[in-house]
Design a protein around this nucleic acid. Structure first.
Lengths: 344, 344
DNA sequence: CTGAAAGCGCTTACAG
DNA sequence: CTGAAAGCGCTTACAG
């Protein structure tokens, strides 16, 4: 392999010192004559010079590299959309991303943090699969960091705007003329240990909007475990409680999936007989017939925002509707309109 | 932030030279007295010394870092499962992963390759969303590299064992007593431009096994575009051609999904009336009712194997049933047995 | 306006 | 068995 071109080569070719070349190539040429600058640029160009990052890091302590540590990367949509958003913004700032996964092991979490720190990354993006509150022990860094889908003392936190999304679901139903509404999936009181911190917010948004609209739920089915089975049982239950409902709010897409199945068995058609709206926009939602109208968890945007924050850029540049509360940056959950809600 | 501990600190504390400390800590202590070694290890331990990777890289040209460049990372399961596999093996070799995504842009592909090379990564993992043959121009590196889900002159290639999977699908059906079988999704002759290089292999495996079993297809529906719609139309078509089929081979899960829908409309139940077997094991497959029996694309294992090859480790250590042909490493596609095939 | 020199923290011949 | 020294390729005071 051909020897790597170094600063010294450029200096030699341009007839200048390494110091001058370095200054010019780093755009600190305030006090360098235009002629010299130009000669240096041409020489660097002709030789195809690129600085050796290891040498730069050794000297400056900067790596142009960000760490993305996530507790789970295998899962659908979560990490992969987030990575996509991160990569996009990182590239625009000439940063590369070093990845690690901890599979929910505190030891691996600590180990990843330590080795990334040892590699002198310029910042940390901490991605959580299920939103929770990180303790101080989780981030033993005096280093720029941001948590995605979680919170932590003193560092920026990127979260989906669940409260707003909850409101929007209700407002959307109301705007389409629905008044008799059932809710499937509210966690029973006291089940909060199982829940991520996003769930109460989603519920509070729903409740607030119902109150604002002057409505109460015609029926409810409570459940912490948000899987298809809960939706199936929930649908049967609310049908029993209030056969005249015109719409169902499912706490998430998996529940909605179960609701569809129950309705289908009962010969109830969506949305002709009963409308359904939901949250998350998992891949699943796009396969359902009719297509499920749902509020998307904006993973890609959350990744973008996290990276922007680390780069001191304003997330509002890329994402409209972002709002901040304290050290929380709340990313809007877009309403994905498909065919599961009918206008009354 | 406290100053970083360096080799010199350890040397000072242990009363040895930096050279000796370096030797000991890199396990090249053949000619160092045990006492000195021990003193040095203790000192390093007590000070919490870790070498500065930038300095090591500058000196040795090694980074303990691998590049994962993929043309698409956003897509379900593909990249994220692959990343998972890569990370797992990388961690066991104390390597970190630098990620980039090119979104199918040749410019970004080249740029990523160049900047990774500039950062002196120790090896390249090139991940392709749709299997194809890379040209020389795509990998202008004289550097360790491996392609996942693709081929390239002179470098190792990790591919799913599609031929074997095709055979297995047929053998499974035959073993369950099926003889009247329809195939949905064979690409029409001359449509090869649309296809990835895996498709002909899948088909060849199917055909070989049918021949071996002394069977021919009772009905076929050809299509390049493997989406739900093709499955729906295909199911209706094969039903027309041969109403007495007992099983359908769908070219992939999306086709199977459409087949289910058509059958449901016709009141045909899976698997009681007709069995269905498929390929890929997309997330979708796990949601279908009844659960779809399918041959999984082993993305995680492909990521593992790629990393192992780069690390000069034998993939057979982790993955059973791997076979090699030339510079191809073929990873078995496991049969995921669910409930869509009935024993006759 | 520009250059010589020090130093970031390692590893590796080389000398003894 | 061990140490002194050079050098990897940069950047940054400092001197002129």
């Amino acid at each position: 392999m051909a020897r790597r071109i170094t600063l010294a080569d450029v200096a030699l070719k341009a007839g200048a010192s390494k110091a001058t070349v370095s200054l010019v190539l780093n755009n600190r040429e305030s006090r360098i004559s235009p002629e010299t600058s130009e000669r240096i640029r041409v020489a660097a160009q002709e030789l195809g010079y690129t600085p050796n990052p290891a040498a730069q890091t050794l000297r400056t302590g900067k790596t142009q590299t960000l760490a993305f540590i996530s507790d789970e990367v295998l899962t659908t949509r979560f990490a992969s959309a987030m990575i996509h958003g991160i990569l996009e913004v990182a590239e625009s700032h000439d940063q590369m991303i070093l990845m690690a996964e901890t599979e929910h092991s505190p030891q691996r979490w600590q180990k990843s943090l330590a080795s990334m720190k040892n590699r002198q990354v310029d910042g940390f993006i901490l991605g959580l699969m299920r939103a929770r509150n990180l303790q101080k022990v989780d981030i033993p860094l005096n280093q720029p960091a941001v948590v995605v889908n979680g919170k932590a003392q003193g560092i920026a936190s990127i979260l989906p705007d669940e409260h707003r999304a909850g409101q929007q679901a209700v407002e959307y139903l109301v705007a389409h003329g629905h008044k008799k509404i059932a809710l499937i999936g509210r966690p029973p009181a006291g089940s909060s240990e199982h829940a991520t911190m996003n769930i109460p917010r989603r519920m509070a948004g729903i409740d607030d909007a119902m109150r604002t609209a002057g409505l109460g739920f015609s029926a409810e089915y409570q459940e912490v475990l948000w899987e298809g089975e809960a939706g199936y049982l929930g649908a049967l239950a609310v049908l029993e409680q209030a056969p005249d409902i015109s719409a169902v709010i499912a706490a998430n897409d998996r529940i909605a999936f179960g609701v569809y199945r129950a309705f289908q068995e009962r010969g109830i058609s969506v949305p002709e007989d009963i409308s359904v709206i939901s949250f998350d926009d998992e891949e699943l939602a796009s396969y359902m017939h009719p297509g499920l109208t749902t509020l998307r968890l904006p993973y890609a945007q959350m990744g973008q925002a996290a990276t922007q924050i680390l780069m001191q850029e304003d997330p509002a540049n890329l994402i409209s509707g972002v709002r901040s509360e304290g050290n929380e940056v709340l990313i809007p959950m877009p309403l994905i309109e498909r065919d599961s809600v009918k206008t009354l």
